[in-house]
Design a protein around this nucleic acid. Structure first.
Lengths: 108, 108
DNA sequence: TTCCATACATACAAAAAGGTGTGTACTATA
DNA sequence: TATAGTACACACCTTTTTGTATGTATGGAA
């Protein structure tokens, strides 16, 4: 039996679990514009490796933040798309943008 | 000379650099309620280690998101407090809370 | 026949993040 | 005199995350 501290399941931790790390929010942000194929995502995030992209997409799909649709063609064609839950991250990204802007302002 | 991809300095990455990781947002959240001493922070985040707390606070201070005020007493008394830039993270935390709530809802 | 494109998988290595345990300075208090 | 409290520092270790380099299946184009 594990000892779970009182704050182990607060909304901040939940969100960190779902969206933490270097890439997930960047991927989600790209997908807001509409469904994308793997290679399209790769081009829109130039410094991500293929492995990371595949791995993070899998996690996003497992968390029900995105869906994967394979067209069963050859060469393979697969499209990734946000779910409703995934789209709910938009205000969060907006808040991040605003935070970054206010941080970089010269004011106090 | 380093090669910097086109998207290296977007607001998402800036925010991730400043607030990423397991602890910074939790610490900031505690400090919204008002200035706190190290031990008070430790009690309000039961599962953080002293090293992590000190280390993360130092980073937050270096980033101008918080300030450190030593009272020069013995035993030491030090207070940590948010700066204006630090307070600007509040909407972000609010957005995280809302995201977590919507994620955990049973709807689609 | 060789090569290309796509969307992966897998093994391995490097780097970053996080955790544990101990020590220190100083004073007050028991 | 021994102990406690505070806010650290430092060494060391483990885990997690990220990166690199290859390999695979398939069919069509050259």
């Amino acid at each position: 039996m594990e000892k779970i501290p009182i704050s182990a399941r607060c909304p901040i931790r939940t969100t960190l679990d779902l969206l933490g790390g270097k890439w997930k929010l960047l991927i989600l942000f790209q997908l807001f514009k509409g469904p994308l194929r793997l290679n399209e995502l790769r081009k829109s995030i130039p410094d991500i490796s293929e492995k990371m992209l595949v791995q993070e997409l899998k996690i996003l799909v497992d968390s029900n933040l995105a869906t994967r649709k394979s067209f069963g063609e050859v060469p393979p064609r697969v499209e990734y798309k946000l779910t409703e839950k995934g789209k709910a991250a938009m205000p969060l990204i907006e808040a991040m943008r605003e935070f970054a802007i206010s941080y970089e302002a010269k004011e106090p």
